[in-house]
Design a protein around this nucleic acid. Structure first.
Lengths: 188, 188
DNA sequence: TTAATATCTAAGCATTTGCTTAGTTTAAAT
DNA sequence: ATTTAAACTAAGCAAATGCTTAGATATTAA
């Protein structure tokens, strides 16, 4: 016995996510969210509680998008290290919007908020990173010559490398990024 | 025929720099700068023009500090690749304050402001990055078996890796960072 | 000593921030 | 048709933002 929502939460969150991805958390104001999401502040607050609530949902949305466009492909592949390398190249495309490289939303958030980040946000972030790392481990294990110690070390190596790629893609050109990726996988 | 300043610009800028390093550009307010620098807003604006002016000077200050505590050692060394590796380890110590890893101010800024960064700020950043890269090239050239093509590729590789280290140091533990560095330098 | 002027304090400016609330509109259960 | 309650609009809140300004306080050349 009530009125219906004129928007779909998942749809407006995707727009919020794109905005956070482009601008970062602090720099994105509720007024900007209002415009981009196409709904009033009242609706934002009644659906998501507060700005942080919108961000948490945006992180979940980012994970979904990344899974669909990026992670699933890696998961399916049986090409071991080469699949991870392809993942690196795919990530650059994934994070580019026209000429702008937005990096990885997760990495951007770690870098912006650092250790002083909200607990809830940090949990989401660590969660995502852990998933990716486990996937890397899974692919590394396809090479049965590697000991579990080596695999652990290489997974750590790849995780940090990926973060480097995220930041560097914002200021380096494609050639430099290619040099990076090619050299990164020479060590494996 | 006038009053004397009660502060030394270089001294208060160092404090501003530390604040920007910890918090980022946007999140650092002029009121916070006021407290940290220990001088009134009037003095801030009369000495440095505006907030951006304080930041530009802070970047210069950061360069100076990095040079003294980090870069000079690399410059002096004749240990080739090992000197660069040591630079990576030194960077982690350099960027740590008690238990908090602040990353590299330059990398933090790129990640926060991205391509939409102010021109003046971007110039400072590119400038700094270019210096470090040339130093890496210089050290790589100590190995006379490397072609200039290989050196160029490896310098790009190392630059991106260093950015990764900066971000990753904010959320990864020492063991993971060690794994990263060791693998990074495995076959250079 | 006086006049000139740079530097200080502290209050204030318009704008933006995250968030709330009063009041209207809409849709479904009765 | 009437009631009920969620969803809307739009105005408004206190606090914080970057920056300015009026006026008091030093310092030094004359």
């Amino acid at each position: 016995m009530a009125r219906k929502k004129e928007y779909i939460e998942d749809e407006v969150i995707e727009k919020a996510m794109e905005l956070f991805w482009r601008n970062g958390y602090e720099t994105t104001s509720v007024r900007m969210l209002e415009k981009e999401m196409g709904i009033n502040q009242f609706s934002i607050y009644s659906s998501f509680g507060n700005k942080k609530g919108v961000f948490i949902k945006s992180l979940a949305c980012y994970k979904g998008k990344a899974k669909l466009e990026l992670i699933n492909k890696l998961q399916k592949s049986s090409d071991g290290i080469n699949a991870i390398k392809q993942y690196f190249y795919d990530f650059i495309k994934f994070s580019r919007e026209s000429r702008l490289n937005k990096g990885c939303l997760i990495t951007n958030t770690v870098n912006e908020l650092g250790e002083k980040a909200d607990q809830e946000i940090m949990t989401e972030i660590v969660n995502f990173a852990t998933n990716v790392k486990h996937l890397f481990i899974e692919k590394l294990e396809l090479n049965d010559k590697k000991t579990s110690q080596i695999i652990k070390e290489q997974a750590n190596y790849l995780m940090v490398s990926l973060q480097g790629l995220s930041v560097a893609s914002k200021m380096f050109d494609q050639e430099q990024l290619d040099d990076f990726i090619e050299n990164t996988f020479k060590n494996l």
